[in-house]
Lab assay of single mutants.
Amino acid sequence: EINATPKGWSCHWDRDHRRYFYVNEQSGESQWEFPDGEEEEEES
Score class of each variant (00 low, 15 high):
E38V: 13
R18L: 13
S27R: 04
E1V: 03
H12V: 08
A4P: 15
R19W: 00
P35Y: 00
F21R: 15
E39A: 14
W13K: 03
E41I: 09
H12Y: 07
Q31P: 00
V23A: 05
Q26S: 11
E25M: 07
E1M: 12
E29P: 00
T5W: 08
Y20C: 08
G8Q: 02
P35K: 03
E42H: 12
N24Q: 04
N24C: 07
D14N: 06
I2V: 08
H12A: 03
E33Y: 00
W9T: 03
Y22T: 04
R18A: 13
E38M: 14
D36F: 07
Q31F: 04
S27E: 04
E41S: 09
G8M: 02
E38Y: 06
F34W: 09
N3L: 07
E29I: 11
D16S: 07
R19H: 03
E33T: 10
H12K: 08
R19L: 04
W13E: 04
F21W: 06
Y22S: 05
N3T: 05
W32Q: 07
F34D: 07
R19N: 03
Y20K: 06
P35G: 02
V23D: 03
H12E: 11
V23W: 04
G37W: 09
E42R: 13
W32F: 14
G37E: 10
S27I: 00
E33D: 07
I2K: 00
K7A: 10
S30H: 05
E33L: 04
P35T: 01
R15T: 09
G37R: 07
P35I: 05
Q31N: 01
D14T: 01
K7D: 09
N3W: 15
Y22W: 13
D14Q: 01
S44P: 10
V23E: 07
R15N: 11
F21H: 05
W13P: 04
E42G: 15
G37I: 07
Y20R: 07
E39D: 09
N24G: 02
D16C: 07
N3C: 06
R18P: 02
E40D: 09
V23F: 05
E38I: 12
F21M: 11
E42P: 13
G8N: 05
E40K: 13
E39M: 10
D36P: 12
E43N: 10
E25P: 04
H12C: 06
E39G: 11
D36Q: 11
P35F: 00
D14W: 00
Y22I: 03
D16A: 07
E29H: 12
Q31S: 06
N3D: 15
S27T: 13
Y22K: 15
T5H: 03
D36S: 13
E29M: 11
D16T: 11
F34K: 15
E41M: 11
W9Y: 03
D16K: 09
G28T: 01
E25A: 08
W32Y: 09
Y20W: 14
W13N: 02
D14I: 01
N3H: 09
E42W: 06
E1R: 08
C11R: 06
C11K: 12
E29G: 07
R18D: 01
S30F: 11
Q31T: 09
E38A: 13
E38S: 14
R18Q: 13
Y22Q: 04
S10H: 03
G28W: 00
Q26W: 06
E40Q: 12
N24W: 01
N24L: 00
T5R: 05
E29N: 04
R15W: 06
R18T: 05
E41W: 08
Q31M: 04
N24D: 05
N3A: 08
G28R: 04
E33I: 06
G8K: 04
N3Y: 11
Q26V: 08
S44D: 11
W9E: 01
W32L: 13
D36I: 11
G37K: 07
S30W: 13
I2S: 15
Q31R: 10
K7Q: 10
E29Q: 12
R15H: 15
P35W: 01
T5D: 04
E1A: 09
S10T: 06
